[in-house]
Every structure is written in structure tokens, then in C-alpha cells.
């Protein structure tokens, strides 16, 4: 089989609907590709070990920790970062709700929180159960306990959690 190292040939990525070429070292994580090679610095590096969730992005619509995957593995995927979710002039509903409910203090975890919540709302819509769901089947009602459990992979060291839950609940309750 064909082996690659410091490939010397470009890797191709689709991020927020745009095409990007880059030539990173084979070891480069998806997070480092975004931040260090493509100047998409909205995704944040907190722990770099999948524990804090600051690096959360969407790959083919699913939320993942971009620090715990290799860029080279995602050349055929649709990647969405916080830059693709909304802009300062055109906030996504979750972004507007975080502003309205003061769902942050320093803001470092916020891009990850919003990407994670975007993926989480979609999971709930598909009826995925959680650890705190009484029933494993049927529609999901996003109670505060459900939101907290489903967002437990995103830490906020300023501890804005009550306001983060308020923001997500407001969006979850909006008619689709």
C-alpha cells in the first residue's frame, strides 16, 4: 500500500463550503490545520487532549474534538467551524442567544460551545437518547438536565454554565 509522510503534495479540504489546499506535516491535527495553516483561528485549543471541548467543530454535520483527529484523515469531509456558523453581521440563532443570555465571560470556550450545541440540537432532533434520558426511544425533550448532560464535553472555566443552558434552551424551544 502507498505510504505518505511529509507528503510534499498538497492536501485538499472543504471547510465552510470553501476549498483549501495545505501542505502540513503528516502529524498535524485537524485543529492545528485550521489554526496554524489556514488562519481559521475561531476554533480554540484548550487542553489538546479531548477533555475541554474548546476545539469542537462539525465534520459532516457531527460534532467532534478537532484536536483528537488527524487533518490527513478528513480530506473528503465537509468541515464546519465557528467561522461557517455565523458572522458578526449575521449571527446564527445560537450565537445571538449566547449574547442575549450572557453565556460567556472570557469567551475562549464559546466557539466550541456553539459548535457543540449546534451538533447536539441536531442529535436531539434525531431522537438520540442521553445518559439522563428516562427512555431510550421516542422524542427527546431538552430539559435543563438533558442540556447539561449532552454538553458535558464542553468546559467553561468562567463557569457561565447557567447562562449557557439558558441560551441553548431558548434555541431548542424555537419552532424549527
Amino acid at each position: 500500500m502507498a505510504w505518505e509522510r511529509k507528503v510534499g503534495k498538497a492536501m485538499h479540504f472543504t471547510i465552510n463550503g470553501k476549498n483549501y489546499d495545505a501542505d502540513p506535516d503528516i502529524r498535524t491535527s485537524l485543529l492545528d490545520l485550521l489554526r496554524e495553516h489556514l488562519n481559521l483561528t475561531g476554533s480554540k485549543k484548550g487542553c489538546d487532549h479531548g477533555q475541554c471541548g474548546a476545539c469542537t467543530v462539525l465534520v459532516n454535520g457531527r460534532r467532534i474534538n478537532s484536536c483528537l483527529t488527524l487533518a490527513v484523515m478528513h480530506q473528503d469531509d465537509e468541515i464546519t467551524t465557528i467561522e461557517g456558523i455565523g458572522t458578526p453581521d449575521n449571527l446564527a440563532p445560537l450565537q445571538a442567544a449566547f449574547v442575549k443570555h450572557d453565556g460567556f465571560q472570557c469567551g475562549y470556550c464559546t466557539p466550541g460551545q456553539i459548535c457543540s450545541a449546534t451538533g447536539m440540537l441536531n442529535e436531539a432532533k434525531q431522537g438520540w437518547p442521553s445518559h439522563v434520558s428516562e427512555r431510550l426511544e421516542g422524542d427527546v425533550e431538552l430539559t435543563d438536565d438533558e442540556i447539561r448532560e449532552r454538553m458535558s464535553g464542553n468546559l467553561c472555566r468562567c463557569s457561565a454554565y447557567p447562562n449557557i443552558v439558558d441560551a441553548i434552551r431558548e434555541v431548542a424551544e424555537e419552532p424549527a
Partner: peptide, 15 residues
């Protein structure tokens, strides 16, 4: 299902 849902986080379970 219950064992899987008791482990890790939403992001990690997706991967």
C-alpha cells in the same frame, strides 16, 4: 445503549 451513553462526551462518542 446505557453503557455507551454513560461513557465519554457527545463529541468523543461521535468519533
Amino acid at each position: 445503549s446505557r453503557a455507551l451513553l454513560a461513557g465519554a462526551s457527545g463529541q468523543l462518542r461521535n468519533k
